[in-house]
Amino acid sequence: MAHIDPAHQSPAVRLLENFSLEMTGKDVPGLEEARDAIPQGSKINVTFLGNEDLEMRVSASKAVRDFGFVPVPHISARRLSSQGQLEEFLGRLQEVGATDHVFSVGGDPATPEGPYDSSLAVIETGLLQRYGVKEVSIAGYPEGHPDIENDVLWRHLEAKSAALKEQGLDAVILTQFAFDTDPVMEWITAVRDRGIDSQIRIGTPGPAGIKRLLGFARRFGIGANAMIVKKYGFSLTNLMGTAGPDTFVNDLSGLLADPDTAARTGGTDNTKLHFYTFGGLKATADWANQFTARA
């Protein structure tokens, strides 16, 4: 990504600086293809999906580090069958230098496969620091969660933030992807009003096919009605096309740059972007470079 004098950066470019990306355990070839388009030192999250195994997750995290990026492996609490499995995973990640940053998330299974029913339960074990973890990302849900009440989400966010602070660990709040800036801004403000000052990374999809984007939105309970997708920058009448986050990034950065809002939320200094790479790592990295060049 081209370097621009901070004094001349647009709010959108400042928001896009130091973006992070997401990949699955199967995406190592895609990462290799995209490596020259991604700024060195970028954070790259590595998923913990049900169709992946330990070797795949560890190998992907190692590849991220070997290519000059910062691995952020996911720890899916409800997919862990035992404390032993958690420690084995953390131990293997530590061997490849991939435990400085992790993302502790609840995970999909309706019934936990072991002793951890939430990401908070994993944090409260105190095991993360033992394996070299310095920073923990935790989940945020600007548009809510289809299976969890909002008051529960807020209680857990506050409890996780407090537990990490007590343990001397840095925290980052990483959100589910969103299409609409209005609930995102309301949620950011609500986070700050609760006294939580951790960096927030707002999740948004990288460029991808519209049908694919809408499929993921439905799966995760994200609002995808006609008004919202129009605000994001695509039309429900053209499902064969592709869409990128240009409009979303421009609108969100403009809102964050408002002096009153920036004073209350930390603005683009304390809010960054996390890209869900539904259309591929290279397509997302190329989009980011092109967007910066145009801005």
Score class of each variant (00 low, 15 high):
residue 230 K to F: 05
residue 214 L to M: 11
residue 130 R to Y: 08
residue 82 S to Q: 06
residue 267 G to H: 00
residue 176 Q to E: 06
residue 256 L to P: 04
residue 62 K to G: 05
residue 279 G to A: 04
residue 257 A to V: 11
residue 190 A to E: 15
residue 190 A to T: 15
residue 110 A to C: 13
residue 208 A to N: 03
residue 259 P to K: 08
residue 154 W to G: 04
residue 136 V to I: 11
residue 34 A to Q: 06
residue 278 F to Q: 08
residue 15 L to V: 00
residue 228 I to R: 05
residue 292 T to M: 02
residue 154 W to R: 11
residue 199 Q to V: 02
residue 198 S to M: 08
residue 230 K to A: 12
residue 163 A to C: 14
residue 262 A to V: 07
residue 137 S to M: 14
residue 226 A to G: 14
residue 282 K to N: 08
residue 191 V to C: 03
residue 12 A to G: 09
residue 82 S to N: 05
residue 242 T to W: 00
residue 33 E to C: 05
residue 213 L to C: 11
residue 31 L to A: 05
residue 186 E to W: 07
residue 221 G to C: 03
residue 18 N to Q: 09
residue 4 I to C: 01
residue 50 G to P: 14
residue 212 R to I: 03
residue 160 K to F: 12
residue 204 T to H: 03
residue 26 K to I: 11
residue 241 G to V: 09
residue 240 M to G: 15
residue 232 Y to L: 02
residue 243 A to V: 03
residue 86 L to S: 01
residue 139 A to D: 15
residue 162 A to F: 12
residue 274 H to S: 04
residue 203 G to R: 04
residue 251 D to M: 11
residue 220 F to E: 10
residue 62 K to Y: 10
residue 96 V to I: 11
residue 253 S to Q: 05
residue 151 D to V: 15
residue 173 I to Q: 06
residue 222 I to F: 02
residue 55 E to L: 07
residue 98 A to C: 07
residue 217 A to N: 13
residue 72 V to L: 11
residue 116 Y to C: 03
residue 290 Q to Y: 08
residue 276 Y to Q: 07
residue 166 E to G: 11
residue 67 F to P: 07
residue 115 P to W: 06
residue 12 A to T: 01
residue 236 L to E: 09
residue 88 E to T: 01
residue 196 I to N: 11
residue 2 A to K: 11
residue 35 R to Y: 09
residue 127 L to A: 06
residue 48 F to M: 04
residue 226 A to E: 05
residue 1 M to K: 10
residue 153 L to I: 10
residue 156 H to K: 08
